[in-house]
Write a protein that binds this DNA or RNA. Sequence first.
RNA 1: GGAAGGGUCGCAUAGUGGUCUAGUGCGAUUGCUUGGAAAGCAAUUAUGGGAGAAAUCCCAUCGCGAGUUCGAAUCUCGCCCCUUCCGCCA
Length: 410
Amino acid sequence: MLDINLIRQNPEKVKSGIAAKNSDPKLVDDFLALDENWRKLTKEIDDLRAEQNKFSDERKIEQATKIKDKIQNLESDLKKLEQNRQNILEQLPNLPLDDVPVGKDESENVVIKEVGEKPKFNFQSKDHLELGKSLDLIDFETATKVSGSNFYYLKNQAVLLELALTNYAFDILTKEGFTPLITPDLARQKFYTGTGYLPQGPEAQTYKIKDSDLGLIATAEITLAGIHSDEILDEKDLPKKYAGFSHCFRLEAGSYGKYSKGLYRIHQFSKIEMYVYCSPEKSEKIHQYLLSLEEKIFQGLGIPYRVVEMCTGDLGAQAAKKYDLEAWMPGRGDWGEITSTSNTTDYQARRLGIRFKRKDGSVEFTYTLNGTAIAISRTIIAILENYQQKDGSVLVPKVLQKYLNFKKIG
RNA sequence: GGAAGGGUCGCAUAGUGGUCUAGUGCGAUUGCUUGGAAAGCAAUUAUGGGAGAAAUCCCAUCGCGAGUUCGAAUCUCGCCCCUUCCGCCA
């Protein structure tokens, strides 16, 4: 949600910002028109109420009743105005930061750097599906029978690999002062909408629990953002850094093609998400910090990756700035998204009511940032495909060996 | 899942239809006092919205939402949460 005062005072800035994100700038004019009517009517009703209160206090019941009827008539109009105004407000995406490259879609994203050496195989390499099968690590067939397509059983050493990756990431993050958490895998709807995820409708990517207000979370971002909703934090406690493990559930309706196969696009996976609450002036530095932690994790794993900065058109609604890490995936012979970190400024905080009190006593909205520490399933793809050997086995990255009693899979 | 009780200002508590503009205590901040502190005394002590150049004024908020009423913290209904007991279970 954007700051109403910003829209009122600087509509041109808002228009150009949302236009860069492929949203219709006309929404701003619509909003301002509704807002002006809303203000007029609000004033009118407030004044009437003041009058009604006065008559009530003086027990002038007849006059008070008359005003009451008047207010009731106006109030239904006000409700409509308020709702329309709110609808538009919720449609407006967060504005991109000034230094974000302008672009229409993902084709205009900017590759910032490439780190690590792509492996060169002197044998016929396999993709993770073949490796998963030959090494008995992933079972899609049985999962399809039990749960449907795009589910999987992790088996044998892949299970231990998942746990090792979890421990590895938590070790790094706790050293960095993050509070480790295992979050609920279900959350109330208001936290989906608050973080900007759509719980329903044709574009919904999330599962909803029938006859309840709950849904399966698509990311721990939802449960981590909820922690301090409707709270006023103390500036001296900022930044608050959380690392939350959760299962993530995504409908992924209509995803087909070679890039969707195997573990890449599935209905359920495990992920550790970083989430930071901070003051506005610290947010850009912390965003770079989150990116550096993501790089540290994948450098440690020895997986070649590149850093991509999203252009304005590919930021999504919540983000003001966003970087992805893409790992080299030999099985597809291409890069595949493996982490994502966003500065959502005060966009989520406004919806969720997350504020903080400065030393001088003033209260303002907190900035929030999120970043993937590790998405286990895609990381397993990258490990299997990059560490495969001629004999069909897969070496375990050095940093994981201390969590496992084997150095080689197969 | 069932039954009973509860949710009030940072915390603790009072408040069962109008003087609640929410009392009291604790805590916090500021001032007075002091060599300094404590104690004491005094004042302040929320959030959102609207009008205004400002001082300031007005509206809303007692878990959330709807309703009854000229008037609701107080009455009614729905929901959420907490506590205790029962059931079920890891």
